[in-house]
């Protein structure tokens, strides 16, 4: 996987084979994958500690890192001694994320779990990912069917169709292949669709990736 120090979205429609693409990678010392197979223990605390103990990462400062991670992910101390089946869905996936972050892999893969978080929690996760990339040199993958949620926060895109890579590269470049994507019925982000609508009508707004930037560029051209 050759996207060093980038945030990458792996997209494609449901059943297109995204998770199969990821399944060929296994959780290793270097690559931490968060998906339904990440769960190994019944109790929250045990799950959080599973991988850091397995890979023996900085056991000397484990307590500090543990407290830091649960604070960062807003994991309530009240659930630490509960069974993983007793907690809510969003808490569950936060625990899985925590268990992977705790052993500090170089590459982190969020494999189809974003959808279980509400918008505010998704934003927190994106901000966290940006920090991990910027300050800790991590490479991050979001495997998701929901390109609209991640588009603003990623650098590169890998489009999977029929278990194969259809397109790969910088996000702006990938979505320039509009016809190819439409032909394969791959979802185009709302913002890209809207920018295309404007440009097709000779309003040359900038190729932005957030609504706020979109408003600014529309206003400059039309307002």
């Amino acid at each position: 996987m050759k996207h060093d120090n980038k945030i990458v979205a792996v997209v494609g429609n449901s059943g297109a084979g995204k998770s199969t693409f990821i399944k060929n990678q296994k959780i290793s010392k270097k690559v931490g994958i968060i998906n339904d197979e990440t769960i190994k223990e019944n109790r929250v605390r045990d799950q959080l500690l599973y991988y850091v103990k397995k890979y023996k990462y900085r056991l000397d400062i484990l307590d500090d890192r543990f407290n830091e991670i649960i604070k960062m992910l807003s994991i309530s101390e009240k659930i630490l001694d509960k069974d993983v089946f007793e907690i809510s869905e969003s808490e569950y996936y936060k625990v899985l994320i925590g268990s992977i972050l705790l052993y500090n892999p170089e590459v982190i893969v969020f494999d189809d779990i974003l959808c279980f978080f509400d918008e505010e929690n998704k934003q927190k996760l994106f901000k966290l990912s940006s920090k991990l990339k910027k300050f800790f040199n991590k490479t991050i993958y979001f495997v998701t069917s929901d390109i609209d949620s991640v588009y603003e926060y990623v650098d590169d895109i890998i489009v999977i169709d029929n278990a194969k890579v259809l397109l790969e590269g910088d996000k702006k470049e990938v979505y320039k292949e509009y016809s190819l994507l439409k032909k394969n019925r791959i979802r185009i982000p709302n913002i890209v669709e809207f920018i295309k609508l404007m440009r097709d009508n000779n309003v040359n707004i900038d190729d932005v990736d957030s609504i706020n930037e979109l408003i600014k560029t529309i206003y400059r051209e039309i307002g």
Partner: peptide, 28 residues
């Protein structure tokens, strides 16, 4: 929630800047 569906958020902001007259439920 502060995050509304795309078309809703875009409509609201465009109305605020007097660039459109009302809300729509489709991009076109």
């Amino acid at each position: 929630t502060k995050k509304l569906p795309f078309i809703e958020e875009l409509s609201r902001k465009l109305i605020m800047y007097n660039l459109v007259s009302k809300k729509y439920d489709n991009l076109l």
